[in-house]
Nucleic acid binder design. Structure first.
Length: 419
DNA sequence: TCTGGGGTCCTAGGACCC
DNA sequence: TCTGGGGTCCTAGGACCC
C-alpha cells in the first residue's frame, strides 16, 4: 500500500508558523520580484486568488481583504521540509521524497493504515506546525487521487481509497485535468475525443492511450486501474541537470548586463554541482525577451548548448564557457527579460533502433511490429525501439518474403542479448 | 507598469559509421 | 555502384510535475 503525504498550502503554512499574527488571515506567497502567486492559504483560495496568477491582477483583492503578502524564503521552506520529511521517514520502512512538500511512503502490512496515518499527521502538526494530508491506495496515481479527496472532502485530511466500487465512483467524478500526468494540452486533446472524466479515460484501450499519450500516459492509466507501474524511488540520485535562471526586475538590453547576470548564475550553478558531487559535460545558455509584451515584433528566444571538452564543476570555467556561448546568441536589437543556464551531466542514451524496410500500408505487419515494440518497452521501460519506415514499394516487394521472420529473429535476439 | 524557478521523461528525425 | 543490416550520437521540441 502506498501513502502520499502532502503538506497543505506549504509555503503559506511555513510563513504562518513563523508569524502567528497572520494565522487567521488570508496569506499569499509571491515569486521572485513579487511577480506571481505561488502559494495561498485556504482563505486566500476562497477569495478567488488563482495559483500562478500575476500579483498585479489581484492587487485590489489584496487591499480589500487585508491579504498578508510574503516574498519567497526558500531557506525557511527547505528547513521546514527536512523536518517534516524526517518525521515521515520514521513512520515507514521506505520513503520517496517527491518534492519539497510531498512524499510517498510504503504502508504495506500495517494492521490499520488509516490510524497510523492519523498518528503521523498528528505528530507532524505537533512538532512542526505544518498540516499535512495523507492519501492511501494501491498505486501512486491512486494515492494522488486519494490525497486530493483527503485534502478537499475529508475533515481529518486522511483518506483511504481501496474499494473498487469507490474507486470507480470517485474516478467518475474526477475531471481528467486533475489527474497526475494530465496537463492542459492533454486535457484539451482528450476533450476533443469526448473524454472528460478519469473513469472515461480508463475505458479506452491500451493502444489508444499509448498512441495519444505515450507510454507515460499508459502507465498512469494502468495505475488508475489498480496495476502498479511506478515504483517507489527510495534512493537519492544526483540531478541530471541543474538550472539557475531568473526573470530580471528590469528589462536589459546591453551585452554587459546579460554577461553580468549570467556570470552570477553560472557561478551558482557551479556551486550546486559541487554540492551534489557532479560535473557538467554540457551547458546550455538561454536568453528570452518578454513573451507577454507584444510590442516586440521580434520576440526572441536565444538558446545555445555547448559540450565541454572536459567535464567540470569549476565556477570560473563554467562562467567563461557561458559568456562565450552568450556571445553567439546575443542580439543587440532585443530587450531581454530573463536569462539562465542549465548544466547537465552527459547521460548515456538508452535507445535501440531497429531498421526495417517497411510498407506502412500493410496493417497486419504494423500490428506485429507494435506488439513487438510493446513487449520490449514493457520489459525495459526506458528503452526505445524504432522502426525506420521506407515506403518505397519496389524494395518492399523484393524483400517481402524475408521480412516477417527477419524482425522476429532480431527481436528475440535482442531480448536475449539484453537480458 | 507589473506574469516564477527548478526539474523529469518521451518522441522524432537526421547525420554518420562500418 | 548500389543496397542492406546493424549501430551511435545528437538535436529539438513537447509534455508533464511541484
Amino acid at each position: 500500500m502506498i501513502a502520499l503525504a502532502d503538506c497543505n498550502n506549504f509555503y503559506a503554512s511555513c510563513e504562518r508558523v513563523f508569524n502567528p499574527m497572520v494565522r487567521s488571515k488570508p496569506v499569499v506567497v509571491l515569486s521572485n520580484n513579487d511577480g506571481c502567486v505561488i502559494a495561498r492559504s485556504n482563505e486566500a483560495k476562497a477569495l478567488g486568488i488563482q495559483m500562478g496568477a500575476p500579483a498585479f491582477k489581484h492587487r485590489h483583492i489584496f487591499e480589500k481583504h487585508g491579504v498578508e503578502i510574503f516574498s519567497t524564503n526558500f531557506a525557511l521552506y527547505g528547513d521546514f521540509s527536512s523536518r517534516v520529511m524526517s518525521i515521515l521517514a520514521e513512520s515507514a520502512p521506505q520513503i520517496e521524497i517527491y518534492s519539497i512538500d510531498e512524499a510517498f511512503m510504503d504502508y504495506s502490512g500495517l494492521p490499520d493504515p488509516v490510524e497510523h496515518a492519523q498518528n503521523v499527521r498528528c505528530r507532524v502538526k505537533q512538532w512542526t506546525g505544518i498540516p499535512v494530508s495523507i492519501g492511501l491506495a494501491e498505486t501512486k496515481t491512486l494515492a494522488k487521487v486519494a490525497n486530493r479527496i483527503a485534502k478537499k472532502e475529508i475533515e481529518s485530511n486522511i483518506f483511504h481509497l481501496y474499494c473498487p466500487y469507490d474507486i470507480k465512483d470517485y474516478l467518475k467524478k474526477l475531471p481528467v485535468s486533475k489527474l497526475w500526468g494530465v496537463g492542459r494540452h492533454y486535457t484539451r486533446k482528450l476533450e476533443l475525443y469526448g473524454i472528460r472524466t478519469a473513469h472515461e479515460l480508463t475505458q479506452r484501450s491500451d493502444s489508444w492511450i499509448q498512441k495519444h499519450m505515450s507510454v507515460v500516459g499508459l502507465k498512469m492509466v494502468k495505475e488508475l486501474r489498480g496495476v502498479p507501474c511506478f515504483d517507489l524511488e527510495t534512493i537519492w540520485q544526483r540531478k541530471q541537470s541543474i538550472c539557475t535562471s531568473r526573470t530580471f526586475g528590469e528589462e536589459v538590453q546591453h551585452f554587459s548586463q546579460l554577461a553580468q547576470a549570467l556570470s552570477t548564475y553560472a557561478a551558482m550553478c557551479g556551486t550546486k554541482l559541487r554540492k551534489q558531487g557532479s560535473c557538467a559535460g554540457i551547458i546550455t545558455i538561454f536568453i528570452l525577451t518578454n513573451p507577454f509584451k507584444h510590442q516586440y515584433r521580434n520576440n526572441y528566444k536565444g538558446i545555445r548548448t555547448i559540450r565541454l571538452i572536459t567535464p567540470t564543476n569549476d565556477s570560473l570555467e563554467i562562467v567563461s564557457a557561458s559568456i562565450a556561448a552568450l556571445r553567439s546568441i546575443y542580439r543587440s536589437d532585443c530587450i531581454y527579460k530573463k536569462a539562465g543556464i542549465i548544466a547537465s551531466e552527459i547521460v548515456p542514451q538508452s535507445q535501440v533502433q531497429l531498421s526495417f524496410i517497411d510498407d506502412i500500408r500493410d496493417i497486419k505487419k504494423r500490428q506485429h511490429l507494435m506488439q513487438a515494440e510493446e513487449a520490449v518497452n514493457d520489459r525495459y521501460g526506458k528503452m526505445k525501439v524504432r522502426f525506420a519506415v521506407n515506403g518505397y514499394e519496389r524494395k518492399w516487394q523484393l524483400k517481402q518474403e524475408r521480412l516477417s521472420s527477419c524482425y522476429t529473429t532480431q527481436m528475440s535476439e535482442l531480448l536475449r542479448v539484453r537480458a
